[in-house]
Amino acid sequence: MTERYPGYNVLHKRNSVSWNDQTRAVIDARCGIDPDFHQFCDEAEWKTLRSLCDHIIPQPLDRPVKAPIAAIIDQKLYGGKGDGYRDAHLPEQDKAWRLGLAAVDAEAMAACEKPFCELSADQQHWLLGKIQRGQASSEAWQDMPPAIFFAKRLLHDIVSAYYAHPASWNEIGFGGPASPRGYVRMNFDRRDPWEAAEASPGREDQARVENERVG
């Protein structure tokens, strides 16, 4: 698949006036997260979590730096900071995740006699679709409704973690941190020189040149 914003890297703005020291510290820490480091998950949970993240957010294989989604989630669960609310059908987020990871694996074992991480991509897709539709039957879910866990915990946490990482911003052409410098050109089809240039058909090379100047 061709990139929409070829050559755009929001991190090139790191030393520009678009970033301040506070932001540099925060983003540096996030980019420095070891993708293999986990404290909350045990080994089995970790494998399942990573496979889930890879499947929900299939990051391009040739991407030089991938967002460490699983590690960001593990860090959040270990730290214990919540979202400020939870659906009454779900237990607290750490319990929900432990239960859910075990249940996803149990579903995989029941259906294919393999843990989730060893399923083929097609099998994973089929299984997650079933869970999303609430068509899961394993005892391992206990009282937790699979569809609510999938929508409000699993998708919510994985997607939040991904779009907190600069790799995702490059993909969607988001301007990223913007303080003290914000933006000037706000009308249709306008970009500041420090914003991502979109590769409309026939303009890929020009967009790449413009994106390499972003800073």
Partner: peptide
């Protein structure tokens, strides 16, 4: 303005 002259580009 925010950033003053250091933020001249904006």
């Amino acid at each position: 303005n925010m950033g003053g002259w250091r933020n001249w580009s904006q």
